[in-house]
């Protein structure tokens, strides 16, 4: 029993840290622009497919396609911001919510058209197999994806806190008008943040492609879960998103184990509702 519980906790951490990386990308965009990107999960899907095609066509392992995914998603995100999102920023709030649904439907179905709705799997990734640590089984690709996600998350936090550009992003997040008066080009920061947030989810996509099924609708659930994580962690908070990501991983895995696997995602949503009821601003929000 104790062994199984330990195994479940390990599983929670493995998925929770990847959730955290996905959610940090989302919270960066949300925090800087107050835009809720419903296409975030579909960006993840695109990242997974890029990794898949790099593997299939170029014999490139997912581990090496991480920079490719990051760069491609950065361009996709910045482009979608420049040509679509920026045009609704001054419009009514409802349009800002709805427009990214359009992007989401467009991308998911573009993937269906280009690559069919089939499920795909990278069959022989460089990393495979499991380590046995006592009674706990540790899948190697999941472990590397998890550690990688933590490293990338920490790097983002360091970038935001220590570099000039990072500080400019945080300044815009705190107060857009004041940042503009201080000479920060807020429009450029918007594109940059959207690109950066998308690049992070692209990296998460490359990690996930090492062990997860790849199909056009894969983003839907990841997207919804990352919304819950972001809102749970608190508006725009990177640290909050990371903690909430791990927390949601625990809820999903332990809930599925002790309660009913069919309800594991329902539990995630329920925890979200209860949390915002008690703390509408999220765990780390002010």
């Amino acid at each position: 029993m104790a062994d199984q519980l330990l195994q479940q906790v390990v599983n929670s951490l493995l998925i929770g840290s990847v959730y955290a990386l996905v959610a940090i990308g989302l919270t960066l965009i949300w925090g800087v622009m107050n835009v809720l990107n419903f296409a975030h999960g579909d960006f993840l899907m695109i990242g997974m497919f890029i990794s898949f095609w790099c593997y299939t066509l170029l014999k490139m392992d997912p581990l090496f396609s991480i920079p490719v995914c990051a760069a491609a998603l950065f361009l996709l995100g910045a482009g979608i911001y420049r040509f679509i999102i920026s045009k609704v920023m001054k419009g009514p709030g409802l349009a800002q919510l709805v427009v990214t649904f359009g992007v989401s439907i467009f991308l998911a179905n573009l993937a269906v058209m280009l690559w069919t709705p089939d499920f795909r799997l990278i069959e022989k990734p460089l990393l495979s197999g499991t380590w046995s640590l006592g009674s706990v089984q540790l899948s190697i690709p999941k472990f590397v994806a998890s550690v990688g996600s933590v490293v990338v998350s920490a790097a983002v936090l360091l970038f935001l806190k220590k570099t000039r550009t990072g500080k400019a992003i945080l300044a815009v997040e705190m107060n857009r008008d004041a940042a503009q008066l201080m000479g920060i080009n807020t429009e450029k920061i918007n594109s940059l943040s959207f690109g950066l947030g998308s690049a992070l989810v692209g990296i998460a996509g490359a990690f996930l492609s090492m062990y997860y099924y790849i199909y056009p609708q894969v983003g839907g659930l990841f997207g919804l879960i990352s919304f819950c994580i972001v809102a749970l962690g608190g508006f725009g908070s990177i640290e909050g998103a990371f903690i909430a990501g791990i927390l949601i991983g625990l809820v999903q895995t332990l809930g599925g184990y002790f309660f009913d696997p069919a309800y594991k995602y329902a539990l995630v949503f329920l925890v979200y509702l209860i949390t915002v009821w008690i703390r509408p601003q999220g765990l780390m929000g002010s």
Binding site: A95, V99, V103, I105, A108, N109, L110, P117
Partner: peptide
């Protein structure tokens, strides 16, 4: 998926 691609495009056009 073409019908849904058009639908998604329509949503973006309406929003903008």
């Amino acid at each position: 998926g073409l019908d849904m691609i058009i639908y998604g495009t329509l949503i973006m056009l309406i929003s903008v």
